[in-house]
């Protein structure tokens, strides 16, 4: 009898393929920027792959900022019941 396998979507092989597909899409998007005539509002936002870099950096800053605040703000779940 065949050993019961987990759902195909969570097998390591599928996840590897998904990462490859995701990377290809990201590369295509950055590449597409060189064929698009952007209409920058303020200058910097007209640079190629501005959105990609800006989005990525924003998220990194937000996550680290949130982690830092979390040290102060995170409390046990019964905090208000004590």
């Amino acid at each position: 009898m065949k050993q019961q396998q987990d759902h195909w979507l969570v097998r390591p092989r599928t996840i590897k393929i998904l990462w490859i597909m995701f990377s290809v899409v990201l590369a295509l998007l950055v590449g597409a920027d060189f064929f698009v005539a952007h209409h920058p509002h303020f200058g910097v936002d007209g640079l190629p792959s501005f959105s990609a870099v800006f989005g990525f950096i924003s998220c990194v800053i937000l996550v680290f900022g949130a982690k830092a605040l979390g040290l102060l703000l995170k409390k046990p779940e019964d905090y208000y019941d004590r």
Binding site: L26, S49, S51, A52, V53, G55, F56, C59
Partner: peptide, 9 residues
């Protein structure tokens, strides 16, 4: 770009 690179992050 904005969203998918946020996804990457």
């Amino acid at each position: 770009q904005l969203l998918l690179f946020s996804g990457l992050a």
